[in-house]
């Protein structure tokens, strides 16, 4: 059984009187441990699809099932709790909290889990260790390079040991070298830590790191060249 099942999903937005269809009857299955790259032109619905899988947004119709949980049946607090346990989200612009240190940023999702402060710090430190930033614990985001910030964001995404990692253009704001390092890190998380990864990207080089490349165009999915 697939870890992620997107079943005949339709997503429309209403902009004043006009109804805009972003995803049109899209279906998709992603197996556990897979590394999928979602590609497509701007406005094709990639981020929307990512948001639906992550329980950040709800489809207009259809179903999204992740790890056996039907997300369309969850609301509010339940959905938030589910996200905290199952989803690690990596943003293009890192979205770290500027007033928190690297360690505190990584600790943030763990505030939602019952554990001692010491255990929280230990886990956050371990996550930063995995991404190679064990010597930047006390640094604030402004004191880090873009690549380092993204690695902190990745540590924050994996610290609660989620089932699925969703990365929205994780290398989009980085130079080639830093981007390559991030992709290597994602690759390692997939292979070594068995994380299922869905990554939105415009970059064909980045997409090549994935096991599967899917193309979205005008809300319709097609398999890219394997």
């Amino acid at each position: 059984m697939a870890l992620v099942e997107v079943k005949n999903v339709r997503k429309t937005y209403r902009r004043e009187a006009e109804e805009l269809t972003v995803l049109d009857g899209l279906s998709l299955e992603i197996a556990e441990g897979d590394f999928v790259a979602l590609m497509g032109p701007s406005g094709s619905g990639k981020t929307t699809l990512l948001n639906l899988i992550g329980g950040v947004d709800q489809p207009s119709s259809g179903d999204v099932v992740v790890g056996g949980t039907r997300l369309t049946g969850l609301r509010g607090k339940q959905l938030a709790r589910w996200r905290a346990r199952n989803i690690g989200y990596i943003f293009q612009l890192y979205n770290l909290i500027p007033v928190l240190t690297a360690l505190q940023n990584v600790e943030l999702p763990l505030l939602l889990v019952k554990m001692s402060g010491k255990e929280r710090r230990e886990r956050a430190r371990h996550a930063l260790d995995i991404v190679g930033l064990e010597d930047r614990l006390k640094h604030f985001p402004r004191q880090l390079s873009g690549g380092q910030e993204q690695r902190v964001a990745i540590a924050r995404a994996v610290v609660s040991d989620p089932t699925v990692l969703l990365a929205d253009e994780p290398t989009g704001d980085l130079d080639r070298k830093a981007g390559a390092d991030i992709l290597t890190l994602l690759d390692r998380l997939n292979k070594e830590f068995k994380k299922t990864i869905v990554m939105v990207t415009h970059d064909p080089t980045a997409a090549e790191r994935a096991h599967r490349r899917l193309h979205l165009d005008k809300g319709v999915l097609s398999n890219g060249p394997s």
């Binding site: 607090k77 989803i87 943003f91 979205n95």
Partner: peptide
């Protein structure tokens, strides 16, 4: 605003 969006994505619920 964006930070609250990030925190919610991480699993913080509306009440928190």
């Amino acid at each position: 605003t964006a930070e609250f969006g990030v925190m919610k994505t991480l699993g913080f619920d509306d009440g928190t």
